[in-house]
Computed example of a mutant assay.
Amino acid sequence: MDFKDYYQALGVERTASEEDIRKAYRKLARKYHPDVSKEPDADQRMREINEANDVLRDKEKRAAYDALAAQVAQGRHAGGRPGEGFHPPPGWDEGFEFHRGPGQGPADHADFSEFFSSLFGAAERRGAQRRQYRARGEDHHAAIEIALEDAIRGGEREITLRSQVLDDAGPPRWETRTLSVKIPPGVHPGQYIRLAGQGMPGHGGEPAGDLYLEVRIAPHRLYRIENRDLYMTLPVTPSEAALGAQVQVPTPGGGVVEVKVPPNARNGLKLRLKERGLAGHPPGDLYLLLEIALPPADTAAARKAYEQLAQAAPFDPRRHLGV
């Protein structure tokens, strides 16, 4: 039984990243897959590629294999020379917990070589006995963009998700699914909505993983979000800013409130409406940023009004410039 160089089988360096290994496997799988390949040794090459990929894509198996390869390179295996009469040294795999590959039973290595089985068969059997062939499915993550009104009042949305499925038998493929999502009232950006059991399926009767949706709130025509606080630009006329006024303001949750603009209000003045932002502990506030809007001087009456204002209230906004 010869020592197998899995890096050579995939045509990658020993320092190859996970992405390098993934790309090399996909490229070779497309070339040697028995369904499409015309190479005379396609079946054998595909088995070798699958075996190498099964080891190098799994962090624990790769670490164990690299440790053993280092021993082989130093002539510390039983045969004395790399690749000749190879037998893994006793206890070589201590400290490694191996995980089952897709579609592969814990002790089912029929499609792999004797070398693979001698290395990983006993280790996987010991690990499987400890786990009793049971494993919860992995959690998945995605993002969901919702309207501000849905974040405040709650609602229901349908989302379509695409995920890439990679198995040992061929090139990767895309799977699409549509889910109905209930949005609880008061969610805020960065919060997660958990969909129980919508992650990867479990093994050995264990439950599936969960799907976590990161909440993102779509831009709104009126309000800007900062954490749980909301900001809105509130236009006021020069007379409202100078004399003070009561103005009506729409609120994010629906409805209208009356807000007092103080006399001599300046442009950019911030007014706070307590707890009118997003829900939370504590809830956010709604801030109104005053913006003085000038009436256009597009009629004779408007121009005359501006002339009278200039005469009645002389004002130099550039006096601080010293010119």
Rank of each mutant, 00 (worst) to 15 (best):
R266M: 11
E158V: 03
F98M: 09
A300C: 01
A242L: 11
E39I: 12
P90H: 08
A24D: 14
P201K: 09
Q164F: 09
Q246G: 03
A135P: 02
A9H: 06
K59Q: 09
D285E: 08
P184T: 01
L213T: 06
A64F: 02
E226I: 09
Y133L: 08
L234G: 02
P201C: 02
G199R: 01
P295K: 05
P235Q: 04
Y287T: 04
G154T: 02
G103I: 02
V72Q: 05
L166P: 02
D54P: 04
T178R: 15
G280L: 06
G154S: 07
Q311Y: 11
L68R: 08
D93P: 05
D41W: 15
T178W: 06
Q191Y: 01
G268A: 13
P314A: 00
K27F: 09
R14S: 07
G199I: 13
P171L: 07
A218F: 00
G137I: 03
I183V: 08
P189C: 12
P283L: 06
P314Q: 07
I225G: 08
D66A: 04
N53Q: 04
A135T: 02
G254T: 06
L213C: 00
P238Y: 10
A265D: 08
P40W: 03
I183H: 10
R62M: 10
G95I: 03
Y306Q: 11
P238F: 12
L148H: 08
G190D: 08
Y7A: 00
A69K: 05
D150R: 10
L288S: 04
K31M: 14
Q71N: 11
A122D: 13
P90V: 00
A64H: 06
R14E: 14
S113A: 12
P296T: 05
T15Q: 06
R318Q: 12
E206C: 06
F86H: 03
L68F: 12
L166F: 14
G95H: 11
K61F: 03
E48Q: 15
F86Y: 11
V257N: 05
A122G: 10
G80I: 00
Q308E: 14
A265P: 09
D2R: 14
E60L: 01
P235E: 02
D2I: 05
P106C: 14
A218Y: 04
G95T: 04
V259H: 09
Y306P: 01
S163V: 12
V257L: 12
V36Q: 15
G91A: 04
V36L: 09
Q311P: 01
